[in-house]
């Protein structure tokens, strides 16, 4: 475990906690894309099936269980518990345009043609684009609450830190995974525009509001 991965994991954990706290304290899921959260639940479920086949460490297992569990709690909050506050009119991204191509790609480009490997690959590809419904929602409404911005920043930083982790592992461990690296680059690039807005606006005390 190197520092980049540890900070990346903590950033991921922080993002999830920020999101849950935002929903719970404000009793509202306004501004949050239920579609992105469903995609994240699918990502974690398909990636962590190895919980049943291999054990790495207590840290690894507990983080996986936490990520899967909280992703379902989040989806439950949006579509059940706080449903009246869910802004479905603005959450109109067509997720089939992500799931179908990503599924096809996972089928064609993978490390090994087996069920678990294809599902793992699918989850890596899907994670890279899962935030698009959320970013689409922010651009459609033209604004994001500060707390939502903090969530997005922590979530985006996590994969950027994993890129540094992979550079480190390449040099010091000779480890390189093309699928993870390409998907990680795509994922991080999708956040670049948001990172720019976050640094130039949110950190100066303004909330993100885009010109109509």
């Amino acid at each position: 475990m190197n520092i980049f991965r540890l900070v990346g994991d903590m950033s991921h954990l922080l993002a999830i906690i920020i999101l849950l706290m935002k929903m719970w304290k404000s009793r509202s899921v306004a501004g949050i894309s239920g579609k992105s959260q469903i995609l994240f639940a699918i990502v974690f479920t398909t990636r962590y099936l190895d919980l049943f086949t291999s054990f790495v460490s207590i840290y690894n297992t507990s983080m996986k269980v936490f990520f899967i569990g909280t992703s379902y709690v989040t989806v439950y909050f949006i579509y059940q518990h706080f449903k009246p506050t869910y802004d479905s009119n603005h959450d109109t991204f067509r997720v089939e345009f992500l799931i179908v191509p990503v599924g096809g790609l996972a089928f064609l480009v993978n490390h090994e043609f087996s069920l678990l490997e294809i599902l793992w690959t699918f989850s890596i590809y899907l994670e890279s684009v899962a935030i698009l419904p959320q970013l689409f929602m922010v651009s459609k409404t033209g604004e994001a609450e500060s707390i939502t911005s903090h969530y997005l920043f922590a979530l985006g930083s996590y994969r950027a830190l994993y890129l540094l982790n992979w550079i480190y592992r390449y040099y010091f461990e000779g480890f390189f995974d093309l699928i993870a690296v390409v998907a990680g680059c795509v994922q991080t690039i999708l956040y670049c525009d948001f990172f720019y807005l976050y640094i130039t606006k949110v950190l100066k005390g303004k909330k993100i509001s885009l010109p109509a």
Partner: peptide, 10 residues
């Protein structure tokens, strides 16, 4: 098959 190293990542 993918390397073992990635199995310890999240």
């Amino acid at each position: 098959e993918k390397q073992d190293a990635i199995k310890d990542e999240l």
